[in-house]
């Protein structure tokens, strides 16, 4: 019964993804694509941050790596010759389709995560967030200086913009599915135990470092995939695209919904994306008959930041805390029965 419902849901989602672009405006489609990519990105942060107890501020570093790796791999040979003339031979003659490039980007990120996670995931307490943020800085500095791979501080351009709605819907569904499988499995239980109490988890024999590393590197894989999708959506980007502002907006989505809940991730992404889009329109200036409000650059971020602070004060564990929509339904049923 349940399975049929899920299949029906997926089928209708797929139908929407195919049909919607024919009906609604390009603008709405672009917005929906952004929502799906953000679901992948915020989902990746949810795993690393909500389920291990190590709050990583470095996830955006993986997003950057994913975007650049996939960008370099899928750039056309002609573009490569003109934009990246100093690329090493083995890369200069590769022109990949988006899908393999995306997967490779994810795997590269996962591999890097294992290497940097070995020291990072050993740390705990107050310093780990600064150290993980350090990772974001390191990635940023390397991208700006690795001229022959990234065009340095200049815009990296020419990435095929082939993100269609069905594509990203597929990735978002896959990301949520994989995360759900992982989180609500025995491994997920281990993750949550490590989050709740490191010493107790160690005492019952859970390999804390291994569990954290697994979550961190799988999160990095998804971040790399999301970064690749983001890159193929934008077409051109620079090191500054994947920096502090992106980190804050992703974290806003994460904390709004609740960082230990997948339903929270989806809700947070939708609410924040919709809200910031609305605010951005207001920001450009509004004309209401004779009254016109001048453009207010930065206003949307101010409002989002304030919303973020309000969530922290009144609902620090997010809208969903650590529940899922399905369990919310379950609880209601139990209550009405009793």
């Amino acid at each position: 019964m349940n399975r049929i419902l899920i299949l029906a849901g997926l089928a209708s989602l797929a139908l929407c993804a195919w049909v919607l672009p024919l009906i609604v405006s390009d603008y709405v489609v672009r917005l929906l694509i952004m929502v799906c990519i953000n679901i992948v990105l915020v989902g990746s942060m949810c795993l690393a941050n909500g389920f291990t107890g190590v709050f990583s501020l470095g996830q955006v570093g993986f997003v950057a790596i994913g975007a650049y790796v996939s960008g370099i791999l899928s750039l056309s040979l002609a573009d490569k010759a003109s934009y990246l003339p100093d690329l090493p031979m083995f890369l200069a003659h590769i022109e990949m389709a988006t899908l393999p490039a995306t997967l490779i980007a994810g795997l590269v990120c996962a591999a890097i995560a294992i290497v940097v996670g070995l020291p990072l995931m050993r740390l705990s307490g107050h310093h780990v967030s600064v150290a993980t943020m350090g990772f974001m800085i390191i990635v940023n500095v390397v991208i700006i200086n690795a001229d022959s791979f990234t065009r340095g501080a200049r815009t990296f351009t020419g990435v095929p913009t082939d993100m269609t709605l069905p594509w990203v819907v597929g990735w978002a569904v896959l990301a949520i599915f994989l995360l759900a499988r992982l989180i609500y499995s025995p491994i997920g239980l281990a993750l949550r135990s490590v989050r709740e109490d490191v010493i107790a988890a160690q005492a019952v024999g859970l390999p804390v470092l291994g569990t954290r590393l697994l979550a961190f590197s799988f999160g990095a894989f998804l971040a790399g995939v999301g970064g690749s999708l983001y890159g193929h959506y934008l077409g051109s980007f620079s090191a500054q695209t994947f920096f502090f502002p992106l980190m804050v907006s992703l974290i806003t989505m994460l904390v709004l919904g609740g960082m230990s809940s997948l339903s929270g991730v989806v809700t947070g992404v939708i609410v924040v994306t919709a809200l910031s889009e609305m605010l951005r329109n207001l920001e450009r200036g509004v004309h209401l008959g004779p009254v016109s409000i001048p453009p207010l650059f930065g206003a949307s971020q101010v409002v989002l930041g304030l919303l973020f602070i309000l969530v922290m004060i009144y609902r620090p564990r997010g809208l969903f805390e650590d529940r899922e929509i399905s369990s919310v339904f379950k609880r209601r049923k139990q209550r009405s029965n009793s």
């Binding site: 974290i251 904390v255 930041g305 004060i313």
Partner: peptide, 14 residues
Amino acid sequence: LLTSLALTYVLENL
């Protein structure tokens, strides 16, 4: 930590 992160976002955009 997140509250301070949000505040820095607010102040810089302000």
